[in-house]
């Protein structure tokens, strides 16, 4: 039986409550719902950058089904996103576990690790483009200084080399954020639990595995979901550092949308692809949240 709160019954909507929610609702509609609807409509058209547009129904989606480069791009993007997220979160977790203790210099290291997070991805891409440059980059200088034979490798000239280099660069850029969130999660764990376990004879790693990690689950889920989503949408690094090369092998999903829409002028097709990416991300996030479990501490 519904509980009646004094002055209001559960059935009648609160005007005041609605008024509080109004600004957020307006923003949501203006900046999310409306553009999403417009994109959905665009995806049903052949919409050239120059010239007349025409309604073509789901033809764009049919084209996407046969678009070989799109399939390659999606596979590449998935591989990149999974590898980068796993490494980035793992490193972030290790750093959080290591730096939560107030030892000497922990604060400095935390700051240094977090610093790359605040520079833009485009800035970071250019930075690494020159770090890895065979002629003027410090890596090349290091190679020579260490006396290694031959010319330093061109990191970005092969698909594997470019993949590894950009994974490393993205982990460097984003692990600080994972670290910070996980650090907060760790610090939310009551000390009494850990002390009690310690008194009962559990050593460090047992405490981490049996107490810290399970209680970290919600934070972990958050970090993983945000990380995977962000990495799935990767564009800047591959656009600026490899231009999708060599031979279009490092083109990502979003890069392909950009190419189709703005280099080849198929805006309708680009819109369709964007909606497909959105759909995939929604599914991925739902699966992830299901697997990692939602909600706060159940214990």
């Amino acid at each position: 039986m519904p509980v009646a709160v004094r002055g209001r019954s559960l059935g009648r909507p609160s005007v005041v409550g609605g008024a509080y929610a109004l600004p957020a609702t307006v923003l949501l509609i203006l900046f999310f719902i409306a553009p999403l609807a417009m994109t959905a409509v665009m995806s049903l058209f052949s919409w050239p950058l120059f010239g007349e547009r025409s309604f073509i129904g789901v033809a764009n989606y049919e084209t996407a089904l046969h678009d070989a480069q799109l399939h390659r791009a999606v596979l590449f993007t998935v591989a990149f996103a999974v590898v980068t997220t796993v490494v980035s979160v793992a490193v972030g977790l290790l750093l959080a576990m290591f730096l939560q203790v107030e030892r000497r210099g922990a604060g400095v290291i935390r700051t240094l690790v977090f610093l790359p997070v605040v520079i833009g991805m485009a800035t970071a891409s250019f930075l690494w483009l020159y770090l890895l440059n065979g002629q003027v980059g410090p890596v090349a200088w290091l190679w020579a200084a260490l006396g290694l034979d031959g010319t330093p490798p061109l990191f970005l000239d092969s698909t594997a080399g470019a993949f590894v280099s950009i994974v490393v660069m993205t982990v460097w850029k984003s692990t600080g954020f994972s670290m910070l969130l996980l650090l907060l999660g760790i610090q939310a764990i009551p000390q009494q639990l850990l002390e009690a376990a310690s008194v009962d004879g559990a050593h460090y790693w047992q405490r981490q595995r049996r107490i810290v990690l399970p209680l970290l689950r919600p934070t972990f889920a958050l970090v993983a979901v945000m990380g995977l989503t962000q990495n799935f949408l990767v564009f800047d690094q591959f656009f600026l550092m490899t231009r999708g090369g060599p031979s279009n092998s490092t083109i990502t999903a979003v890069y392909w949308i950009y190419n189709r829409a703005f280099m080849n002028y198929h805006l309708g097709y680009g819109a369709a692809l964007a909606l497909l990416v959105l759909a995939v991300l929604v599914v991925v996030n739902l699966v992830q949240l299901r697997l990692l479990g939602r909600g706060g501490s159940d214990e």
């Binding site: 997070v117 833009g120 485009a122 800035t123 954020f177 910070l180 969130l181 564009f235 600026l240 950009y258």
Partner: peptide
């Protein structure tokens, strides 16, 4: 933090083409 991240992402994306 999430808001800050989104804000920073939005700003940094302004730097991309």
């Amino acid at each position: 933090l999430a808001v800050a991240m989104v804000g920073q992402a939005a700003c940094s994306n302004g730097g991309t083409p």
